[in-house]
Simulated scan of single mutants.
Amino acid sequence: MNRIYNYIKSYSITYNSLLKLKKVYENTNGKKILVFTHAMNEGGAPLVLWEALKLIAEKGFSIFVISSSGGKLCHYTEKNIYTFVAKRPLFVIRKHLLRYEWDSIIVNTLIMYKWIQAFPCVKTSWWVHEGNTYIEKLKNKLPKNLNSNVSVYCVSEWTKECLERHGFHYNTKVLYYGIEDNMCKNNYKNKNDLLTFLFIGSLCDRKNQLFFLEAVEKMKTSLQNKCQFIIIGDRIKGYEIYANQVLEKINKMKRNIKYINRVSHDEISKVYAEADVVVSCSIDDPLPVVVTEAFMNSKCTILSSNSGQSRIVSNYIDALVYKADSKSQLIDLLEYTVESDKSEIEKIGYNGRKLYEKYFSIDVFKKNIFDFIS
């Protein structure tokens, strides 16, 4: 009964959304872009898509977003961007949308693969944000060959490598996201003058907090005593056991380690300002926003080789990279930052800022985004 009820409810939401879309379409002039995304929450892929759509809308395009689920972004108000929640049945949605003329189509994320070849006569851009984890899950469903109207854009070289590793040799380009320059201009130094390490990420095995804590444990005690470690990350559904293990580990260590469940968007700049070193230990992360934000804030950054940004850094110049499965390398880098002169660590952070300006600034993103839809 629940399954039937959910299907009827989903169909009703879709039907109402498509009626609404019809009215909006008929009252909209100019070029129209159709967008498919799995969600409209403030997660990584939907959020960077939203930033891209705002830039496109500024040029006068009317953008119609079809999302499989709702979220906060559905309630945001932006000129020329219209959002509709429509999940199923897919053949009904497609039949309805084929009635209209579209100048371009954007499919956001690997998860929405069913839409990439649904409109063979319309220029379609597929922006892929996933890494090994999701490609492995979907490898038997993804098409090996694509229609000539489909262009594939990977969010990083890491995503491109992961696709090829699984046998998907698409003709791809890299389209990095862009983020607004919200660098905090002030530095808030702790009274205890300890070197502050910052680790941000939801508590899950992909973000790899336990690996980081185990490395901290094995640092020389004399160096540990010169540091404080701040871990920020909320508990997420499906990873409760891992989250409990992380929190138990933190409680047992009790060595200058502070855990914060989450911080507001308004507080995040101050958090970065207080940090000396930002650490990302992800085991599969195409382009972690925390690393990009660390670059933006001129922070020395330690990241794993399985993070997308590792493909564009020069080790010991603008960031510090360790082999993803090497705890000894991570320990060495943690100790290196403590033993080095502070000016050397700051220099790495300043050079990291140049990476932000070269690859991830909004100005650069504006230049790249129109190739995406042209």
Rank of each mutant, 00 (worst) to 15 (best):
S148Y: 08
K220V: 00
L195G: 04
K141R: 13
N225L: 10
L195T: 11
W158N: 13
N182W: 03
T196E: 04
Y188R: 12
V174M: 00
Y170E: 10
G233V: 05
K218C: 12
G178H: 01
Y170H: 06
D234R: 08
E217Q: 12
W158D: 14
L146N: 03
D193M: 07
E217G: 02
P143H: 09
N182M: 07
C204A: 04
K141W: 00
T159A: 13
N225I: 00
E164S: 13
Y176G: 03
Q209D: 03
D205N: 13
K226M: 05
C154V: 02
L142M: 04
A215F: 11
G238M: 03
K144C: 02
S151F: 15
F168N: 02
D181T: 01
I230W: 09
M219P: 01
Y176M: 07
M183S: 14
I231M: 07
S151N: 11
Q209M: 09
E164Q: 14
L146F: 08
C184K: 01
T172W: 03
D193I: 01
V155W: 14
R165E: 15
Q228C: 14
I231D: 03
N145P: 00
K160S: 09
I231C: 09
C227D: 03
V152L: 06
Y188F: 15
D205S: 14
K218Y: 09
K226W: 08
V150I: 12
G201M: 05
N190H: 15
N225W: 02
W158V: 07
S202D: 10
L194Y: 12
E180Q: 06
Y177V: 01
I200Y: 04
L198D: 02
K237Y: 15
K144T: 04
F168D: 06
L163Q: 06
V155C: 12
C184Q: 07
P143L: 08
W158P: 07
E217F: 13
E214S: 06
S156M: 02
F197L: 03
N187C: 13
N145Y: 11
N187L: 10
C184T: 05
V216P: 09
S148Q: 07
E214H: 04
